[in-house]
Design a protein around this nucleic acid. Structure first.
Length: 419
RNA sequence: GUGGUCGUAGCUCAGCUGGUAGAGCACUCGGUUGUGGUCCGAGAUGUCGCGGGUUCGAGCCCCGUCGAUCACCCCA
């Protein structure tokens, strides 16, 4: 019989590395919370049409990377490939846009794309994202970018950069597109490249081949076609970033893969990763809500890739410490089998009193039990034999210093909490 | 989806021109009666990713397959 293995391309986090995954995710979430974002928890599967209309049928994500299936009621269901569309759907459906604006929410969870796996590119991946909806104001563009940057700095990341650009409003994009298509027509492109250009001509800007790069050097840039308002907005965002000391690079050749982006658009890129180096990105989306049948509100948000950020942190050596991170405060050991049930009861009582504790299981010799105590990462340990039960006194051992303190068993919880 | 590389104990890997497997770390036990992290000793562990083929004989060769990885593509 064949051994069952995990589906292709999924990432799994288990001890001890899971603690770092958790730390990264919680740090990202904290950055959102402290800026006034509130949790929105959504289904991981949605009506397929939500993504077709929201993300855009011409995108690679929708056209060839979605996990789509028919449910038992004959509905077409898709595992969410990104977070923004679902948030919009929920905002519209639950009338959140009728309340005070802007709506500021954060989310965290798994997303799915059927791509060829690679380090940092998984078929089930994790994102933390925020959305600020209902306000088209450079201040909030700045805020969103600053939340991400603060999160990265809180993690201790150094080797990353922020690329920003503006995709302008629809008029800006239309006039640029016209000129760009004329320009591309003048190039001698192969069929595959032509096909890519037909779907989204901007794609050619980040083609990695040298000859294409060279040819595109003379291509008209969207930034030069911005309407006065778009240009003003973009200038203001830059000013705010500069004042806040957030370094950025204007990258007019940046391309985003989802159709809904407009205006301010940004990407965080780690230079410690390989080809999958984008650790987060986002931007403004003007027409998305209206497209999905809601009010015509603008919004801006980002998605941060937890898997990749974890890889980046590891690549920067932020988690090199061999120290065990543990929530445990106390580890209790029964000297012999006779004290097992006593210890079991004691640990249960201590847990009821809010002490994080664990005990030695099985019939190991004291030496083995002490090893377990050591590995558990608990701050204190206690050995209980018949003497301790008779006298009611135990030797509370500090596992770091090795020092021992005589304590009443009844005072264990107080003593542990005090230290 | 396209192309390249790789797949041996829990982990990192070694295995000479084909003769049915080893190291380090980790793990378990012990170093005389009740205290871990150092040191010393002993021990357990693998259908050599899976399936087929060539061969007297394959971890080493061939084909397929699954998976990982690198680049393209795409993006978090």
């Amino acid at each position: 019989m064949r051994e069952i293995q995990a589906p292709k391309g999924v990432s799994e986090y288990f001890p001890p590395r899971s603690q770092y995954f958790e730390f990264v995710r919680e740090t990202l979430i904290t950055a959102a919370k402290v800026s006034g974002y509130q949790l929105i928890e959504l289904p991981v599967f949605e009506d397929t049409d939500l993504f077709k209309r929201g993300v855009g049928e011409s995108t690679d994500v929708v056209s060839k990377e979605m996990y789509t299936f028919e449910d038992r009621g004959g509905r077409s269901i898709t595992l969410r490939p990104e977070g923004t569309a679902g948030v919009m759907r929920s905002v519209i459906e639950n009338n959140l846009d009728k309340l005070t604006l802007p709506i500021k929410v954060w989310y965290s969870g798994a997303f799915f794309r059927a791509e060829r796996p690679q380090a940092g590119r998984y078929r089930q991946f994790y994102q933390v994202g925020i959305e600020a909806i209902g306000l088209n104001d450079p201040e909030i563009d700045f805020e969103v970018i600053a939340v991400a940057d603060r999160a990265f700095k809180a993690l201790g990341l150094n080797s990353y950069r922020l690329d920003i650009t503006s995709l302008g409003d629809s008029a800006s994009r239309a006039s640029h597109r016209k000129d760009l298509l004329i320009f591309l027509d003048s190039l001698n492109l192969d069929e595959a490249t032509k096909a890519r250009a037909a779907i989204n001509p901007l794609r050619l800007f980040d083609d990695k081949r040298e000859d294409i790069q060279k040819a595109m050097a003379k291509a008209p840039l969207l930034l030069d076609y911005l309407s006065p308002e778009s240009a003003d907005n973009f200038a203001r965002v830059q000013e705010l970033l500069t004042n806040a000391g957030i370094a950025f690079t204007i990258n007019p050749r940046m391309v985003r893969g989802l159709d809904y982006y407009t205006g301010t658009t940004f990407e965080f890129v780690s230079d410690k990763l390989g080809a999958q180096s984008g650790i987060g990105g986002g931007g403004r989306y003007d027409g998305l809500m209206a497209e999905l049948g809601g009010n015509d509100l603008s919004g801006i948000g980002f998605g941060l890739g937890v898997d990749r950020i974890l890889l980046a942190c590891e690549a920067e050596g932020l988690f090199d410490s061999t120290e065990v991170k543990s929530e445990l405060e106390l580890f209790v050991i029964a000297l012999s089998a006779e004290q097992k049930s006593y210890v079991s009861n004691l640990v249960n009582d201590l847990r009821n009193q809010g002490i994080n504790c664990d005990m030695a299981y099985g019939d190991r010799a004291l030496k083995g039990s002490m090893k377990s105590a050591d590995k558990s990462g608990a701050r204190f340990s206690v050995v209980i034999g018949s003497d301790e039960i008779d006298s009611g006194n135990v030797a509370l051992k500090d596992m770091k210093t090795g020092s021992i303190k005589e304590v009443r068993i009844s005072a264990l919880s107080v003593e542990v909490k005090a230290n």
